[in-house]
């Protein structure tokens, strides 16, 4: 019945529910400490760092619908891409340069799109749902590709102007501001998402994932909740997209379509689905590996990520965090 591996549910970390302790555990501060340490220790890698933070945010938004609510999508890039283009068009064409205004506009656009498309597609399931999610991101890819006067078409939209954050912090050449800005936005979104999955609403999402028929039978407004979480997830994805544009001062076609959606799925699966921090581990490992390997061995890189995906599905359905959990459980049993 469930689309998820057993490791992603009860007993696994951060599955939510009525008896889960919602307090932040000490391990949960580790990513933030690491991010702060990286700022000082690796100043040459801040643009890669910002990219990782942005994809963590994007993966977090996917985990909300995929890991918790069990909605499978091939088109999450639609919201990421729309957010990215809204920020880009505002900064490059319309003279709206305040980063937080751009962010808010991107979030609103993606959120509205999430409500509209969610209301349409969440009435379907299975292959039809997959096809619709894919078709929607392809619609936007077509628009971005063909509406060259607004989007720059295949050349992309360069020269996106982004004013200093809060009028104080200019986006510098070393990417210091970009890194801290992305980190701050990620932190806020993480906190909100975390509240959400520990809330009754979050618990009801896992109920929908586990058994939609029973959710109907206990009188839950299943469709409404799915559209709601889809819109929230879309909003966060839109914010992530806007961050990408702002930190690069550029937006191109590669934010839309099947490939970015597929890569995002790979990152999340690699880290672990429905565990909250799988969305942190996956993009971190994936993007660092990509930075080293993809340039040197582009063909093998694609083959490698495909192979890893196949192996994860066949042998390690909980992803990296699932492996860590299993290893810790084994250690505990041995010491006991």
């Amino acid at each position: 019945m469930s689309a998820l591996p057993p490791a992603a549910a009860a007993g696994a970390a951060h599955a939510g529910g009525y008896v889960a302790d919602p307090r932040v555990r000490w391990q949960e501060w580790l990513p933030w400490l690491l991010a702060a340490a990286a700022f000082f220790a690796a100043p040459d890698y801040l643009s890669l760092g910002a990219r990782i933070l942005i994809f963590i945010l994007f993966a977090l938004s996917l985990d909300l619908i995929l890991g918790y609510a069990g909605i499978i999508t091939l088109g999450h890039s639609a919201f990421f891409g729309v957010g990215a283009y809204v920020a880009g068009i505002l900064g490059a064409k319309l003279g709206v340069t305040d980063p937080l205004v751009q962010l808010a506009a991107a979030a609103a656009a993606a959120g509205v799109l999430g409500v509209l498309t969610g209301a349409i597609i969440l009435r379907t399931t299975g292959l039809t749902l997959l096809m619709l999610t894919l078709a929607i991101t392809l619609v936007f890819l077509e628009i971005a590709n063909k509406a060259t006067s607004i989007t720059g078409g295949a050349d992309g939209l360069a020269g996106v102007v982004v004013a200093p954050v809060l009028g104080l912090f200019r986006f510098d050449l070393y990417g210091k501001t970009a890194y801290l800005y992305a980190l701050a936005v990620l932190f806020v979104c993480w906190w909100l998402v975390r509240r959400l999955i520990y809330s009754p609403f979050g618990a009801s999402l896992t109920g929908i994932r586990e058994n939609a028929v029973r959710m109907h039978a206990i009188g839950a407004p299943v469709y409404f909740r799915m559209v709601a979480v889809y819109a929230i997830s879309a909003t966060i994805a839109g914010i992530a997209g806007a961050l990408l544009t702002q930190t690069h001062q550029f937006v191109g076609l590669n934010v839309l379509g099947l490939e970015p959606s597929g890569e995002l799925l790979i990152m999340l699966i690699l880290g672990g689905v429905g565990r909250l921090y799988g969305a942190f581990v996956g993009p971190f490992v994936y993007l660092i590996a990509q930075d080293y390997l993809a340039k040197q061995f582009p063909e093998y890189w694609y083959f490698g990520i495909g192979l890893i995906l196949v192996l994860v599905v066949l042998f390690a359905r909980g992803g990296i965090l699932g492996i860590v959990d299993a290893a810790r459980a084994r250690l505990r049993r041995r010491s006991a």
């Binding site: 009525y18 889960a20 896992t206 009188g219």
Partner: peptide, 23 residues
């Protein structure tokens, strides 16, 4: 307990809360 609590929360009309922890 979550299986049962989901139903009780639906009946009580508190199942849609997004901010306060379920616990």
């Amino acid at each position: 307990i979550d299986n049962v609590a989901l139903a009780i929360a639906e009946r009580d009309g508190v199942a849609g809360g997004m901010f306060r922890p379920a616990s």
